[in-house]
């Protein structure tokens, strides 16, 4: 009942693309005493596809982890669906409708594919068979291999398991940390195609990606981050055309 309602609301949201979903303002965050981010601003509207690019150590992943409550909050605000979520713990943030796919070790290797998906819906009382079926429709290879241990699968398939698990609760926003890392070049395009499809189904995407050119080509909007601060923000296409961005951050 509640989920249907959420789905309806999301559908309504996706019609109006200007509906603010995530609003990060002046965010300072880091790990322990070490501050990484300084006054970072970032927005994602409902159904939008946003990419963060920048050099190594720019704090791209830290932005994402901060949204998900995995860093030390030091100031500013993170608002999701008109609710302050900074200082919340990850399991509370999942309840609000954000899913997160970490970069490494993102599947439970000793659990089967199906069990991995079940864990994605742990906070629900019942195992939602229809949601599992939905993920199997999205990633058919997972249906074939549902009883295989996730640890025995290839990198690309593991990435699918990780995404499917994060999508089990039908989040409004999916955080993807370097989804193409470690994938063979031909699989990278498939991975980006899959992300496009997830986005087309109405889920907003916030993605950190090393493969910056491809990511900017695919996304609606991009942020360039350096040394923990905002540098540029524009549509993906505009950032690709921006001479300064190309010179400094995209290797010419």
């Amino acid at each position: 009942m509640a989920t249907e309602q959420a789905a309806e609301e999301r559908d309504a949201d996706s019609l109006n693309t200007d509906t603010e979903l995530l609003e990060v303002r002046n965010l300072d965050a880091g790990y322990g005493d070490l501050q990484i981010l300084t006054a970072v601003d970032l927005d994602v509207t409902a159904g939008e596809y946003v990419t963060i690019v920048g050099p190594n150590g720019a704090g791209k992943s830290t932005v994402m982890k901060s949204v998900f409550g995995l860093t030390t909050y030091m100031g500013g605000s993170v608002v999701f669906n008109d609710e302050k979520i900074h200082g919340f713990k990850p399991d509370e943030i999942i309840h609000k409708g954000i899913g997160y796919v970490p970069q490494n070790d993102n599947v439970f290797g000793t659990l089967t594919v199906r069990e991995n998906l079940e864990m994605g819906a742990y906070i629900l009382d019942e195992v939602p068979e229809d949601r599992i079926e939905l993920q199997f429709d999205r990633f058919p290879v997972l249906r074939e291999r549902q009883n295989q241990k996730a640890g025995t699968m290839s990198g690309g398939q593991r990435q699918m398991v990780a995404m499917a698990r994060a999508l089990m609760l039908d989040p409004d926003l999916l955080l993807l940390d370097e989804p193409s890392a470690g994938l063979a070049p031909d699989l990278v395009q498939e991975m980006f195609d899959r992300i496009d499809r997830i986005n087309n189904d109405g889920t907003a995407i916030l993605m950190v990606e090393q493969n910056a050119k491809e990511a900017l080509r695919r996304c609606d909007r991009g942020y360039v981050l350096a040394q923990g601060e905002n540098r540029y923000m524009d549509t993906g296409r505009a950032l690709l055309d921006n001479e300064d961005v190309r010179q400094q951050f995209l290797g010419g």
């Binding site: 399991d91 999942i94 439970f108 659990l111």
Partner: peptide, 18 residues
């Protein structure tokens, strides 16, 4: 299953909402 998941990878268990 959640116990096995947690034994497998605690950080992931946390971000999965367990």
């Amino acid at each position: 299953k959640a116990m096995r998941a947690m034994a497998d990878n605690q950080d992931l268990a946390l971000v999965t909402g367990i």
